[in-house]
Design a protein around this nucleic acid. Structure first.
Length: 487
RNA sequence: GGCGCGUUCGUCUAGUGGCUUAGGACGCUGCCCUCUCAAGGCAGAGAUCACGGGUUCGAAUCCCGUACGCGCUACCA
């Protein structure tokens, strides 16, 4: 056994933001660790200097923290297997590459990019089944190597893949997988800038950090034979592999920026709740085998298992995400929603206005079943925050009759007689007036709604009146009568 | 091109040889509830389980082949 306690890692490269596919990978690692009382480690794979992005690591960590996927070891919190930035472990990789060099399992290569390019073109022209490096530098004598290095010739270190081998491993998700070593290229291990490639770095680090399960996206499946080879050549025990199905665009290609939002930050900024995003992404490629679709994080931990992960890619379906968001929002308590709403107000056009908690709580109670996002608690019912700025034209045409102004005037008069009216008081007054006028409820209720809210949809009429309050209601009725001019 | 992986309603999926006239969810349609919009309830449309061969008394489920899709094929991760 490698270790009693499972240790897993999420190893993103800092390219600027956290991809939702990355979030799913992080989540599965996290769930697996928590479920099995293991450790969840964050490691930054920053070995490509040309792709260095300022602030990317901070973004990554912030996104993970936002989602509440707290890691046990990582860049900003440390741990006993650090450093957790690969760029700070260069000497380690070099040392291990040297070991391979000594064992004859790796070799220096001085080929120029031009020769490599020409080689590839030549191989393609000859229609060779697969294009790979021709081991040209394997035959250079030790003296010559020493000389080239001494004179400052740039070099890389390549893995010396033995031909005619069968490389096999068992993937937790996909079962038995095998490759022929003839199809595996002599992969560069150390680049000419001295940095390791992913292949070397991830194997060395996973071993040194005692990673037991490598849970990552399917795009890595094809390079797993290289990794397996490295474990064997170092004489290390291999971790278990689990390759997760890809997240897909609607056209079934790998989820990409070109076809919509892919950054976790984008979804956060659009107002998605972290609970909903996590819940949604958990269901992409995994299910517990029952009909449950609504989950909180702790339930996911409870039910998660790698052997219920699917093999085929999953389309990222926004409609279902929206539904889950509404579902999670409705399940939240009003006081929880109050905090979120106040935060949203502070970012809205009403940021300078004051609304008592008690008032907002009423708004929430009346609206929570009707919205999908916290910000809808403002945008779908602005009339709770300011008088109607305009009146829905279609509703005017449909409900504003010549006799309406008089009827509403009568209602306003009746309302003005009330002191501290409750919802029921409004209703009683309303019934009284409609009886006196001899008109059906619906004949006045729609114009009333229009006058008070400017809209034709919303919470129950009497809730609306109660929340807005007597004086304001009367004021709005008067304003409406003055301003609504049917065509 | 090579190698690898995959293929159940539009989408996410259940299904591991008979319980399946293939179940659920999102979305869609209709009805109910109702002052509107939602929520909720009910109903409906929607999958010859990619295709073709086998194995078996019996296959979405096992085997083989084909097609299609996707991934990888870098001194990117």
């Amino acid at each position: 056994m490698i270790s009693e306690t499972p240790r897993v890692r999420f190893a993103p490269s800092p390219t600027g933001y956290l991809h939702v596919g990355g979030l799913r990978t992080a989540l599965f690692n996290y769930l697996f660790a928590k479920k099995n009382s293991g450790k969840f480690i964050l490691r930054i794979e920053d070995t490509d200097r040309s792709r260095y992005v300022e602030g990317a690591v901070e973004n990554l960590i912030n996104a993970l923290k936002w989602a509440e996927l707290q890691f046990d070891e990582g860049p900003d919190i440390g741990g006993s297997f650090g450093p957790y930035f690969q760029s700070q472990r260069l000497d380690i990789y070099r040392k291990h590459a040297d070991e391979l060099l000594q064992k004859g399992k790796a070799y220096y290569c001085f080929c120029s990019p031009e020769r490599l390019k020409a080689l590839k073109e030549e191989q393609e022209k000859q229609k060779l089944p697969q294009a790979k490096y021709d081991k040209h530098c394997l035959s250079i004598s030790p003296e010559e190597i020493e000389n080239k290095i001494k004179t400052g010739q740039p070099f890389v270190i390549r893995l010396n893949v033995e031909p005619d081998q069968i490389i096999q491993f068992d993937d937790i998700v996909r079962g038995h997988v095998e490759f022929e070593s003839n199809n595996v290229d002599d992969q560069v291990l150390i680049k000419s800038d001295g940095y390791p490639t992913y292949h070397l770095a991830n194997v060395v680090d996973d071993h040194l950090m005692k990673i037991t399960h490598v849970i990552r996206g399917e795009e890595w499946l094809s390079s797993t034979p290289k990794h397996v080879l490295l474990y064997d050549v170092f004489g290390w025990e291999r971790p278990l592999f689990a390759h997760l199905p890809l997240l897909l665009n609607p056209d079934r290609s790998k989820l990409s920026k070109r076809q919509g939002d892919v950054a976790v930050e984008d979804y956060r900024d659009k107002g998605f709740l972290k609970e909903a995003l996590l819940n949604f992404v958990a269901l992409l490629g995994w299910n517990a085998g029952d009909d449950q679709e609504f989950y909180y994080l702790d339930e996911l931990i409870e039910k998660f298992s790698l052997d219920r992960v699917n093999k085929s890619g999953a389309v990222f379906d926004l409609q279902k995400l929206n539904w889950l968001n509404a579902e999670h929002l409705r399940k939240k308590s009003n006081s929880e929603l109050l905090l979120l709403l106040k935060d949203e107000i502070s970012k809205s056009q009403f940021k300078d206005r004051y609304f008592p908690d008690e008032y907002l709580l009423r708004v929430i109670e009346s609206m929570k079943e009707r919205v999908s996002f916290v910000r809808d608690l403002i945008n779908n019912c602005k009339y709770f925050y300011e008088p109607p700025q305009e009146y829905e034209q279609k509703a005017i045409e449909k409900n504003w009759k010549p006799e309406t102004p008089d009827q509403l005037k009568k209602l306003a008069e009746e309302f003005s007689k009330l002191t501290n009216p409750t919802k029921e008081d409004y209703e009683n007054s309303f019934i009284k007036v409609s009886e006196e006028l001899g008109v059906g409820k619906g004949k006045i209720i729609h114009p009333l709604r229009l006058a008070v809210s400017g809209q034709s949809t919303g919470p129950g009429m009497f809730d609306l009146l109660f929340i807005i309050g007597k004086n304001e209601v009367i004021k709005r009725i008067v304003t409406a009568i003055e301003n609504i001019k049917p065509l």
